[in-house]
Design a protein around this nucleic acid. Structure first.
Lengths: 97, 97, 97, 97
DNA sequence: ACCGTGGTTAGCTTTC
DNA sequence: GAAAGCTAACCACGGT
């Protein structure tokens, strides 16, 4: 069973207590940092979309472009994974450094 | 972060000549802009993950935090949608522009 | 069709109505089919896990095996995607099939 | 469906000899069993998708159906506890109802 | 203009 | 407790 104890009873209540007090303020700060970062991320997603739009206006096919980007990325990932597999083999047969 | 340079690939830079009237150089430029932006996006995703990790180290439950962020976001969206509906109503009765 | 009836709120009743009646029975039937299929899917996931366990008991490294399976799969997918890209190029330059 | 045969790959079947005392043939057998099971799993996933499609064609809302399935699966007790903790956190940052 | 579809992303589970 | 793989929701796009 997953054993996800959400209540965190073992921890001292002083850590998450002070409802509306200092711990609440810290939590709020964390939340807002996350929200700020997610906004920036969303903004970048829009920039990417704009680049595709611009390319399209120049006469390029966005669908093809996306496929190229995707293939280039998967090339890199595949190469990395193959290296990992190689490392695994080497450690499996005791050729570790 | 290990600075994974997406631009590195097998394709030879010399081969970006025009093909069938298509400017290879321009296409390459678009592709690289997209890749650059996607790297930044990925970097932000890692930053977000770090914030959750930091909060967790402080004693907060990341799962709950994600739920809170999600709720706040949907609250905002709902409010925005309600505003849009209100705008629609107002334009419907001629109270706009 | 003349949409003269302003009280359109009840319009969907013919499709999903009969709560507890015949439509409810159909919905229930769909739900149960899904649940049955998901059980089978879960069962297969366990079978897969068992195979890895068996292999491990035989002396193989499950982590390596998973990586091999993953690489073989991505080889296939990459090949398929490259073909799709080729098709896209061909249709883009009018060499449609 | 495009009949993606997972077993086909670049590796030559003749190269499955023992390497460092490892039975290549046995490993290959395990890998192929996994791939076969994963194909079946994928097939079931498609069946499920089909059921949702069929239900949709009958007039049901697939999104709602998925939610129903999900709810039936989830543990109500656990969800209540999560909600309680969530309420606590929300009051901590002033998002009281 | 809408539907269906594919791709993307976030969340959950399980593993190490 | 961190990391990865899997699953499910979301969104944007093209076809009809």
């Amino acid at each position: 069973m997953p054993k996800t104890n959400l209540k965190t009873d073992d921890q001292d209540d002083a850590e998450v207590a002070d409802v509306g007090g200092v711990s609440g303020a810290r939590l709020k700060s964390f939340i807002e940092r996350v929200e700020r970062l997610e906004e920036e991320k969303k903004s970048l997603a829009e920039d990417i979309k704009d680049v595709y739009g611009e390319a399209k206006a120049t006469g390029f096919d966005a669908k093809i472009m996306r496929k190229i980007v995707s293939l280039r990325k998967s090339n890199l990932e595949k190469r990395r994974e193959e290296q990992e597999l190689l490392d695994l083999y080497m450690s499996a047969i005791g050729m570790v450094e």
